[in-house]
Amino acid sequence: MFRVKEYVKAGSLEEAYQLNQKKSNVLLGGMMWLKMGSNYKMTAIDLSGLGLDKIEETEEEFRIGCMCSLRQLEQHKGLNEYFGGVFKACTRHIVGTQFRNGATVGGSVFGRYGFSDILTCMMMLDTQVELYKGGIVSLEEFAKMPYNRDILVRVIIKKDGRKAAYVSQRPSKTDFPVIACGVAKKEDCWYVSIGARPGKAALVKLTAGESSLAEQAQAAAEQFAYGDNLRASGQYRKYLAGVYVRRLMEQLKGEEQK
């Protein structure tokens, strides 16, 4: 059971950052995963009073505060219209409405979980994270960075004209994915993101070539590493990745021709 000695509702990011430098302290997101550990923490730092629970849309980008819930992503009109509904597609199967009302974007992205639909989906887009000390880094790079004690303040997604599509396969409808695939296309570049392999999502960029979509999808899928866990074997995952990436490519191609 999760236990904590003190609770601080941070008045500023600086206060939160200072407190978070202590390893025995912990930053609260939605507490979906945190409470499952049987760890004793000194201070729980709550960012919920800093107004970071909004999605702002500008001409160039979407700015998503770290305390936004997954449900906000799911329901945000602008995001879903711009990116072909992928934010609904990547959230709707996560446990249930109440869970998505609680789970935060910051927690999901900072955690860089292997099973993360959110990370997979955002990875195929031109996404950056804004770290309190570390500044702005691309999500692709952030995913590879070691865990540190910085604070993820917001996620920024550029409106760069990418068309996107997303799909996952799950053992039951609200379970973790066996495989999660996102494909985006801009001009002649494919952005392929695959998560739950079961490793965390990574990005592969391909220039759309002359070969068939099946071959291109296969080529993309080949570039990822796959492994076994409770839900599936690496071999099956690799096979599925090829199938789903091809289907997503076909879908985007089809939409392009409309």
Binding site: Y7, M31, Q98
Partner: peptide, 29 residues
């Protein structure tokens, strides 16, 4: 459950259905 999966503990926080097993009471202040 202890893993936010069952929905038995659902309450509304400011009208929004929420898993009360996953919220610190301090946050209800």
């Amino acid at each position: 459950c202890e893993t936010s999966n069952c929905g038995l503990c659902t309450v509304w926080m400011d009208g929004v259905p929420t898993l009360s097993c996953s919220v610190l009471a301090a946050r209800a202040d």
